[in-house]
Every structure is written in C-alpha cells, then in structure tokens.
Amino acid sequence: MSNQRFLFITGSARPDGNTDALARQAASHLPDTARQEWLNLDDLPLPPFRDMRHAADGVPDPVGNEKILFDATLAATDIVIASPLYWYSVSASVKLYVDYWAGWLYRKDLGFKSGMRGRTLWGVTVLAERDEAQADPLVGMLHKTADYMHMDFGGVLLGNGSRPGDVLRDERALRRAEQFFAAARHGLPRVSVQV
C-alpha cells in the first residue's frame, strides 16, 4: 500500500485554466493508492508576506489559511506546483505561498526544513509561447527551491496553450502527462529532469 500523499498547489489567475487541466491529466495517471489533495490558492488567500525573523516577537504561529497550507505542505510526500507561466516565472499567488516557506523555516520548533527533506517537488506549467526555453526561469526557481530544501526535484511538465482548453489539444503535453509521475507510480528513485 502506497503512503504517497500528493499535494497539488494551483495558482492560476483563471479558474479551470490550462495549467490545472494539464496537472489533472498527469494526476489521473497516479496509482489509486496515492492520496491527492488539491488546494487552489485563490480559495486560500494569504496576506503579504512579512519577514519577521529578526522581529522582537519572532515569526508568529501559522493561523487561518496559512495554517491550512502549512499543514498540507508538511503532510505531503510530493508537492506539485501548478502555475501558468507569468512573466517567465510562477504566478504571484504561488510566489507568495513559497515566500511563506521562509517564515516557516525560521521557526525551528515547526520542523519545516527537516520535515521537507527528502520530499519531492514537481512543477506543471502551460505557456503561450512555443519556445519552451521561455519557462527556464520557472524551472530554475523550482529546482533551486528543491535543492535549498534538500528535496528531490521531479521536474516540470510543460504544455502549450493560451485560450481555455488549448492544452488539451497539445498532444505532446498529453503524452508527457502520461509519463510525468512514472517514478512515483513504480516506486523508482526520482531524478532531477526537465521534461
């Protein structure tokens, strides 16, 4: 029985957009034993991140939506960031979510950094450009985040589309989606690859 828990963090400015559709295509190929949790950052808005590590009172406890995201993140074995490509990187809501990781890191009692070690970070993005190198900054941001956190990096699934539903006509992306979580399906070691 699998104890894999996939947390899908979706951060699109458009509900039910192409990135969500591609992420769901990939998720449909996960084993039935892998648990899936989907959290849309629009449903869990966060206030602007404040760096409180040097404040007299320190970093406060996560509360409200932050607590929901913290608990789900720490409980996951695999975190999938599903963000459209915005200005060559992740969306503002995804960037804000990852900024909160910095606060969680400075609370040693939360055990965030040690808890994330060995987990796997994945990415899914859809871009309007045909030149997939345009997504290199997004891929780099996720890869470096995984490295810093001592996480495995599963890679980034890329698709093409602009208008709603476009990615479902991107046959190359749909073929990639079938195999994207292959290592997770078969219990194989994860490697850092961009697909």
Rank of each mutant, 00 (worst) to 15 (best):
L96V: 12
L157P: 08
S28T: 14
F180H: 04
L39I: 15
R185G: 14
F181Y: 13
F153C: 02
T125I: 05
R107D: 14
H143P: 00
Y148A: 13
G103R: 01
N160V: 15
E178S: 14
Q134R: 05
F6T: 13
G115R: 15
A182W: 01
D152I: 00
F112Y: 09
D152M: 01
V126E: 00
P164W: 05
G11K: 04
R176F: 09
W101V: 06
D57Q: 14
F180Y: 10
L168C: 05
L44M: 08
D51I: 01
A23H: 07
G123E: 05
V156W: 03
L138A: 02
V193W: 00
G159V: 07
D20N: 11
Q4F: 01
V59I: 09
S28D: 12
D61F: 01
R14D: 09
A21S: 15
R14P: 13
V167K: 02
G161C: 02
S114W: 07
G155E: 01
G159L: 04
L121F: 03
P189N: 11
W87V: 15
V63M: 12
P137A: 08
M149F: 05
D136S: 14
P47M: 04
L168K: 14
W104N: 11
D43P: 10
R190G: 07
G11H: 06
I79W: 02
G187E: 12
R107M: 07
S192M: 00
Q25P: 00
F181G: 03
H150G: 12
A133H: 08
H143T: 04
D109N: 04
G11E: 11
L121M: 10
L85V: 08
K67P: 08
V126F: 01
H150P: 00
Y106W: 11
A146W: 01
N160K: 14
S89G: 15
R53Q: 12
S12T: 14
P15K: 08
T73F: 01
F8H: 04
W38G: 06
A26V: 14
F180T: 13
L30P: 01
G58W: 05
T77V: 00
G118V: 06
L188P: 08
F6P: 14
D170R: 07
Y106H: 08
E66L: 03
Q179W: 03
G118S: 12
V90R: 10
K95G: 13
W101D: 06
D20C: 02
G115Y: 08
L69Q: 15
P62K: 10
A82V: 11
S83K: 01
L168D: 07
L142M: 00
Q194R: 07
N40W: 04
S89E: 12
P137W: 00
L74D: 08
A102P: 01
F8S: 08
R163H: 09
R175I: 12
P15E: 07
D51R: 12
D147W: 05
G118T: 11
P48R: 10
D170A: 05
K67M: 11
I9G: 03
R163F: 12
G118H: 11
A177C: 07
D42F: 00
I81K: 02
